[in-house]
Design a protein around this nucleic acid. Sequence first.
DNA 1: ATGATATTTGTTGTATACAATTTGTTCAGT
DNA 2: ACTGAACAAATTGTATACAACAAATATCAT
Lengths: 219, 219
Amino acid sequence: MWYSEPMKNSDIIASTLEESILRGDYQTGERLNEVALSTEFGVSRTPIREALQKLTKSGLVEQIHRKGVFVRQPGPVELIELFEMMAELEASCGRLAALRISEVALEKLREANGKCKIAMTAGEADTYYYANEVFHMIIYRESGNSILEQETKRLHQRLKPYRRLQLQVRGRMPQSMSEHEQIVEALTQGESDKAAQLLRGHVTIQGEKFRHLLSALKK
Amino acid sequence: MWYSEPMKNSDIIASTLEESILRGDYQTGERLNEVALSTEFGVSRTPIREALQKLTKSGLVEQIHRKGVFVRQPGPVELIELFEMMAELEASCGRLAALRISEVALEKLREANGKCKIAMTAGEADTYYYANEVFHMIIYRESGNSILEQETKRLHQRLKPYRRLQLQVRGRMPQSMSEHEQIVEALTQGESDKAAQLLRGHVTIQGEKFRHLLSALKK
DNA sequence: ATGATATTTGTTGTATACAATTTGTTCAGT
DNA sequence: ACTGAACAAATTGTATACAACAAATATCAT
């Protein structure tokens, strides 16, 4: 037994494609050829097209009439806006989580933070990266609002490639760590506004950092 | 020449259907029959299906395998979560708008607020409703973040039917008015945190009000 | 008459066929 | 060599055909 819920092919294809795109399997601006995908997935064009239609709504791809669907690259302005929105959503999650977080979740948070610290001293960027993700996911979850959680996760995923670059900026990891500790403290104390403020600042990219990010992107 | 931008039929159909659903032309739980829609729109099933695929991603309709797509009714829990998220998004818009709002926008805001007041004293709920909407849209816009603006607008639209019920609660309009004035004041002074806090409270539905809303829904 | 089972009907999911349009290529003509 | 028109190929959008499945209805044994 494989699927408890029977799914349409187009659904499977849509999520598969979404993953692929977020993983960066396709170049930005690349066209997603329907016949190529259909042979690749071993189905006809119809379910492929339906999958692509779904993806357009999530902003990952853009559909141009009679030209095809292309994987979308956010420009600098859009990128700034996305990061700003991310900061606001994180802040909201933090605000609510401070009011609702459970003791066990707090413990997991400290654990994830510990792994961050270990990874940092060991200089293992990838490990740090993963533990950092866990840290944030816990906060989203503990907001107690599944819709907010989903939406924040989505944006988090979308910004993943850029966040990765962000972390490579020199000296970012130690600063991020100390911010984490402050955040845990605020959540522990139930200081919602402080948690929100800290998380907002944690995610926000100020001018100079953003220019670093942009220059790194052009490579 | 009709369309400056050539659009696919499925796009037109998708937005048309979205409007219809939000306007409440379809019963909640009603199935959207593909052949019926195709004859109605005068096209084949294919573009209809593609339109429906798009709608699934926005949460307005739900697709059940081999059964069809149904207009979705958020349950009480989801409704609470949606309103809470709305409050957070409004707060974010307000926070940013307080830092960025222009003088002319402030003036428009006061103007919309004036119309609200007139409508209130005249007891014209519909007029009040419309002016209130203008008021909030201005704030979304003045956040200066078009993505945040779009997302907030979307949720605003989605919650429209319920907001309407909310306003009919006795004594809601005067309270709403006084909150508006405080919000304008905070925005004028550039007090971002206060604006955020006020807007959050303005949108949030507390326990009792929510029960009113639910009971009104059941009719 | 009733409950179970077969049949019919309606609807969705997928494949294929065709039309519309864009993109690429060839080949005069200069 | 370059331009540009004409043609060819590729690709998307739409329509239709068919298959898979679900629900409704009819049939039949008890």
